[in-house]
Computed example of a mutant assay.
Amino acid sequence: MTQQPVDYAAYLARQLAVQQFNVASYRLGDEQVWVKKANTPHGMARYRVLGALATLFGLPVLIPVPNLGGHTAIATEVQRLRDLAARGLRVPTVLASQEDGFIMRHLGRPAEQTPSLGNEIEAAVPAGPEAVLRLWLQGLRAIELVHNQGTCLSQAFARNLVRCPDGVVGYIDFEDDPTAVLPLPLCHGRDALCYAHSTAIYLRQCGALEDARPLWAQWLQARGPALQEVMDQTMHRMRFARHLPQSRKLGRDVQRVRAAYDLLRP
């Protein structure tokens, strides 16, 4: 018996009317989908403060990219997912959308979780430097692939990179668009900083940080002068980080910043 095609738009409209959570997963026949609904709009006050601090310290790469929430965030994410898919990048397929939400296909197999690269890297720490470096390099190359397509991610933390069942790294979470606020080289620098901030601490924990530094330098050297200039200026402005403790004495976030600086410093 031939399965009838799913009317995704009608299904989306029904689920948005009753769905309690902002994001929820469902089974539709032999596929798994996610429905994302608009949340409460966000204010701009905190972004203005962060933007002023980034300007004060001469770090334009850290100028915040506003996520306004609500219908704006839905429209942004739908547009970004479709744009990235058109560039041949592995992102969830948007099946239908409306002003207050959209439905997308799961990147993995139905009923199976697609692990984030961040979780995989952390879990690989006990296995030693080789295992962690292999995963870390896979994420770095996945970011390179995005940059080579003339675009950027939204928040390139390792938690927003996922490993699909075929081993390809996919990308999720696109509620903001850095290219609407920053020139592309700064967007690429922002991606690099986000990835380093979310992974360098695990490189240090397994003893792989020093091995990763020349790999990062080779990656950056191949990216061209625009990104190199952004990173040189950023690391010069961030040289205060060399005085931060490597321990958790001042908290996990400070420890992450120090590890990222030690990874990326010239």
Results as ranks from 00 to 15, higher is better:
159 R>L: 03
13 A>F: 07
260 A>C: 01
216 W>M: 05
74 I>H: 10
222 A>C: 13
191 D>M: 05
106 H>T: 05
265 R>A: 14
138 Q>W: 06
223 R>E: 06
182 L>R: 08
99 E>G: 05
86 A>S: 15
8 Y>I: 03
75 A>F: 11
144 E>Q: 12
193 L>C: 09
89 L>K: 00
150 G>W: 08
63 I>W: 03
224 G>C: 09
17 A>R: 09
60 P>Q: 07
139 G>D: 04
65 V>Q: 02
168 V>I: 06
244 L>N: 12
201 I>C: 09
73 A>C: 01
149 Q>R: 14
126 P>F: 14
199 T>N: 01
14 R>M: 07
44 M>I: 15
101 G>P: 15
62 L>K: 10
151 T>H: 02
93 T>F: 04
148 N>I: 03
264 L>K: 09
235 M>R: 04
183 P>L: 02
111 A>T: 04
233 Q>W: 05
211 D>A: 15
216 W>N: 06
90 R>T: 11
52 A>L: 11
200 A>R: 08
212 A>I: 15
264 L>D: 07
161 L>R: 02
136 W>F: 10
34 W>E: 08
15 Q>K: 11
158 A>V: 06
260 A>K: 07
77 E>G: 10
190 R>P: 13
238 M>C: 15
67 N>P: 11
238 M>F: 13
69 G>D: 14
143 I>Y: 02
136 W>A: 00
209 L>Y: 13
113 Q>M: 15
102 F>R: 09
228 Q>S: 09
141 R>V: 06
74 I>E: 13
226 A>F: 08
53 L>E: 14
145 L>A: 15
144 E>A: 11
3 Q>M: 11
12 L>K: 01
102 F>Q: 04
217 A>R: 15
127 A>K: 15
258 R>I: 10
130 E>W: 14
3 Q>I: 02
43 G>K: 02
79 Q>D: 14
88 G>D: 04
37 K>D: 12
34 W>D: 00
67 N>T: 09
7 D>N: 02
178 P>V: 05
181 V>L: 14
137 L>Q: 13
163 R>L: 01
82 R>E: 05
178 P>I: 06
4 Q>F: 06
86 A>R: 13
180 A>E: 07
198 S>A: 06
208 A>E: 04
240 F>H: 11
64 P>S: 01
237 R>N: 12
238 M>T: 13
253 D>Y: 07
243 H>G: 13
32 Q>A: 08
199 T>C: 00
59 L>Y: 11
131 A>L: 08
165 P>Q: 07
1 M>W: 02
225 P>W: 01
116 S>H: 11
18 V>H: 03
7 D>G: 01
32 Q>R: 01
169 V>G: 08
150 G>F: 00
266 P>N: 00
20 Q>W: 00
200 A>D: 01
116 S>M: 12
5 P>V: 06
202 Y>E: 06
216 W>K: 00
89 L>M: 04
136 W>V: 04
26 Y>H: 09
159 R>V: 10
123 A>E: 12
115 P>V: 04
253 D>I: 08
160 N>G: 01
66 P>Q: 05
60 P>M: 12
40 T>G: 02
